[in-house]
Structures are given as structure tokens and as C-alpha cells.
Nucleic acid binder design. Structure first.
Lengths: 114, 114
DNA sequence: TTATTGTATTTGTCTATACTAATATACTGT
DNA sequence: ACAGTATATTAGTATAGACAAATACAATAA
């Protein structure tokens, strides 16, 4: 159980990196929120754009109620941010880190050529 | 629903990338497997090393039975591979892609300096 | 005001997941 | 063969998650 140096730029240990309970739990909560097929699809539909609930419903393909429930989960976990304009609510991916994670997952999981 | 070119190197659409149901479901299954605190911790304990069940139990900190069940989930979903040597079973992260995903998640979620 | 559209919330039900305790299996050493 | 150690499996229970249907709320249009 040691201190495995990772490079010259920093000298913290592997254990410091992610084995800290706090980080683990934070990551776990976020991943759990993301790891549902419909929610993953919502995130993909959003990308780096801002999209209304109605458009999300149309693109993802389940009931409005169901989408709204999933959006609430993503919003409550801090994955999505929302903005209300008149009659509609627009959602977007809340922070840069999550956006990066999504694109990284696309690299890892997608069968498309790259 | 269009074709948003991403760059000069490739001309596939955003939709092609991850909105395909098959990719979504594959990613979703993997993420679900990863998104449990104990399983995330197991992956962090493993890193790119090969570790015996006993050592995982000691490092992660729950019952042997519980660890074994989580290992089975990770193994069945193709996240982990295992090798038996005499009395013991050694686990490791199965493929390079998952290893990359883990380190990317560390970047995104970890509070440690980088 | 009433009707309409867009979104959110609540409630009930069904299924999946997590954990523990107990037991089984497999290998090793004597 | 027996005892001991390492790992896996099973069964039971408790909790969380998913979905649909109905309803509520908010804003606009008439």
C-alpha cells in the first residue's frame, strides 16, 4: 500500500486520487445518474446544446412524464442545469467536467469509427 | 436531425456516435456496473494491477461474500477478468478501454490536484 | 375568464439491487 | 483422509429504482 509516484509534475499517491470515500461517493452518485439508458440518451441529445423538454421528448422517445422524471434526477444530481423561458424549460449539461466525461464515454463505448 | 461534422478527420454525425440504441445500451450496462461505490472502489484498488480477492477484501472493507458478489457482477459484465492460481483468484481490469475510462473518471471526479 | 400548451409532481405498483448469514466448492498442507 | 484457507453461491429480506396514470402548476392565447 504505497505511494506510487505518477510523474514528475505531482507526487500524490494513487490512494489519494480516488480511494478517498468522498470522491468515490461523488463519482458513484454521478455515474449512477448517468447510467440509465434514457438518461444517457438525454445527455447525448443535449450534447453541448440547450434543448427544450418537448424537443427532448421527441428525440428520446418516451412519455413526457417519464422524461420529466429523468430530467429531475439529472438536475438534482447536478448533472443538468435548466432555464425557463416563457412557456418552456431548456436544459443543458451543467458543467464542463461532465461534458468532458460524456465525450470521453463516447470515445470508449461507441462503435463509430474514430 | 442533421449531420454535424465534427472535424476534418471524420464525417459521421453526432447521432451516429452515441444515439444508436446499441451503443447506448452497452454504455449503460457498463456504467451501471461501475457506478456502485464498492465496485468503483474495487476498480480503484485494482488499477492496472492484478489483485487477489483476499487483498481486495482487505482494501475495500466489506464482507468476503459481498466482495465476491460485486466481483461477479463486474466479471459478468466484462469489466474484469480473472485468473486462478492455486488457492487464490486474481482479478484485473479486463480491457484497455475500461482502464482508460477509469483514469478519465479520476480526472473528472477527483479533488486531488492535477 | 376559460381553454390550451408545456412541464412538473404524486401515487401506486412492479422489478431490480444490495446486503447478510449460511452453506457449498476448490485447493493446500499434514 | 482430514483440517484449514480462499472463493463462490444461495436464500431471505430490505431498500431503491422505473414506469404509467392521473393531477397539478405555469404561462400563453383567445
Amino acid at each position: 500500500m504505497g505511494s506510487i509516484a505518477l510523474g514528475s509534475k505531482c507526487d500524490f499517491t494513487i490512494e489519494d486520487m480516488l480511494v478517498k470515500e468522498e470522491d468515490i461517493d461523488r463519482a458513484s452518485r454521478s455515474l449512477k445518474a448517468i447510467s440509465h439508458p434514457l438518461r444517457l440518451k438525454i445527455l447525448c441529445v443535449l450534447g453541448d446544446k440547450e434543448v427544450s423538454v418537448q424537443d427532448i421528448v421527441d428525440n428520446v422517445g418516451t412519455s413526457q412524464s417519464n422524461i420529466s422524471q429523468h430530467l429531475a434526477i439529472l438536475r438534482d444530481k447536478g448533472i443538468l442545469a435548466s432555464r425557463k423561458d416563457a412557456n418552456r424549460v431548456y436544459y443543458r449539461v451543467g458543467d464542463y467536467r461532465t461534458l468532458r466525461l460524456i465525450s470521453m464515454m463516447q470515445e470508449v463505448f461507441c462503435s463509430a469509427p474514430h
